[in-house]
Design a protein around this nucleic acid. Structure first.
Lengths: 160, 160
DNA sequence: AATAAATCAGATAAAAAAGTCCTTGACATT
DNA sequence: AATGTCAAGGACTTTTTTATCTGATTTATT
């Protein structure tokens, strides 16, 4: 079916968002993230690893280890995450798959979509993780299971 | 990487567009379409089959057989094609994959995207194939290989 | 030093998407 | 009636994405 982000990327965004709602110095384990956000444990491990290698997260081994944001959440945009996981091909590729379609020589169909594509792009670079986290604290969202999971972060649940 | 449409759907749109630039009563073979649009022959066969079953195309067997639009291109929208191939899940699913996210209980991130989603949806139902075909006839697009392929439709080339 | 909790790394498996092959039946043309 | 060209349809293969498993390494705690 498709739809803008890969599953991997969705998981990445959800995870970074989760980390953004914690104190910067607090470390969060894969176990906790996977449990809270219902993401497969080992799959998530790889994703966090990638985000770490890309410099978005820092990781610490050993007991009391885990992951944390490598920078203030205000500085992390959705685009950073998407870029790290899915890449930026979507800013270039023709939505209809005409391989010959380039920005210099767009096909007509491409044009219909360029505005939308720009909207998407700007939304990605405009929205930082801190803003998004703030919005998720609004009372009308707190009853949402996944958000509650992010907002309350007590003892981790087991997965695998 | 993802990005809105499946490959299958892209091929479907390209094909319908191609058919829309021909006379209604003209039949086009899989061979011609596959050759012109560089789509794998057998894969395209299946796609055209699906479009036929969904009522967007009519098919005719035997020599002189082939496919044609089942209705005037003015009546076919991008949405019809997307609906037939990829389905309409994208109008409902949360972009970030929060499974608990529904129109009644959107997550905050979902909200950022609802406008875009609407834009996409409206563009899909607004744009009919006849319009798109007309645009592709504009001189500035005619030098584009794929468009040339669609605009000139002489003797078919062989594939597989 | 031993233990346990965590990430790291690589191999494998399962599922989904994309693509291929092959046989059948329709049907114009000869 | 025979032939060749076409779509229909099902089974299969390949590739990509998603997910799992297993073992190693790091490190805080006892």
């Amino acid at each position: 079916m498709s739809l803008i982000f890969s599953r991997e990327c969705e998981y990445a965004i959800q995870s970074v968002l989760y980390l953004a709602l914690k104190r910067r110095d607090e470390r969060t384990s894969i176990r906790e993230l996977a449990g809270r956000l219902s993401i497969p444990y080992h799959f998530l491990g790889k994703i966090l690893q990638r985000l770490t290698r890309k410099g978005l997260l820092v990781s610490h081994k050993g007991p009391l280890g885990g992951f944390a944001l490598s920078m203030p959440p205000e500085e992390i945009t959705l685009f950073h995450i998407v870029e790290a996981i899915d890449g930026t091909a979507f800013t270039r590729l023709c939505v209809l798959g005409f391989s010959e379609c380039t920005p210099e020589r767009p096909c007509s169909v491409h044009e219909y979509w360029s505005t939308l594509r720009d909207n998407i792009y700007h939304m990605l670079i405009r929205k930082n993780i801190a803003d998004m986290g703030r919005d998720m604290r609004k009372p009308e969202y707190q009853r949402l299971p996944a958000v509650k999971a992010i907002l309350s972060h007590p003892s981790p649940t087991r997965t695998t």
